[in-house]
Nucleic acid binder design. Structure first.
Lengths: 110, 110
DNA sequence: TTGACATGATACCAAAAGGTATTATTTATA
DNA sequence: TATAAATAATACCTTTTGGTATCATGTCAA
């Protein structure tokens, strides 16, 4: 499970790969179709797709001589869960801000 | 803003750095205190802390000859927001699963 | 069946990452 | 004021990363 989250975090660390995921969120695409969206070579795009697949963020299905790349949104969930741990800090921060605002209002009333 | 999210994603891609964040979520720590938690050198830990600072995930405050490293939970928010885009897919997937279960139950009733 | 097409597989390269060791520099403190 | 402690700054090394170019393989279609 810890390996799983690492694969996903690693896959997400590159801006091109995050961009690929956004493209695949619109529709499934072959390697060539994905490559058409970028100015780098097909080979480079294929490497990115491999890393995305290793991170379980996409799945690849052979279809004749083409390979269909398909978004696997659930693959991002381990990352979301890891990040979710920090929600409590955001909540606390929100609380602090609300209290600060309330304090400020009380001071202005004096 | 796009640079901002890249810095955070980059910082989060390393398991040691994620581990450092977890330690800092318990309490503020000097570089030396952080380094005590790991088997790598202080210098290596300091590099990680610099990258975390560049990604706005921590802040560093000089205090005499020590430097206090402090978690900045809000720095993770750009990442959470990026990831949040995929929530809709999870919801759709949940819907599909519910429909599949319902379909399965109908078939068993026949 | 013979090309064209989509992808796979290598080999290679430069730069970035993650690490160490060593040498300053600043700052408490005996 | 020495001296030890905490950190800063370099220089250096190895592996990984992101990219290219080239060649091989499988597959559709005239």
């Amino acid at each position: 499970m810890s390996m799983e989250v690492q694969g996903a975090f690693r896959a997400l660390s590159d801006p091109t790969r995050r961009d690929i995921l956004l493209h695949l969120s619109a529709r499934d695409m072959t390697i060539g179709e994905v490559a058409d969206q970028f100015s780098i070579t097909r080979a480079a795009v294929k490497k990115h797709l491999t890393i995305l697949e290793e991170g379980r963020l996409i799945s690849v299905k052979a279809h004749g001589r083409e390979r269909i790349n398909h978004l696997e949104p659930l693959g991002i969930k381990p990352v979301a869960d890891w990040i979710g741990y920090f929600n409590r800090f955001w909540d606390e921060r929100l609380l602090e801000m609300q209290q600060a605002v309330a304090q400020h209002e009380r001071e202005n009333d004096e």
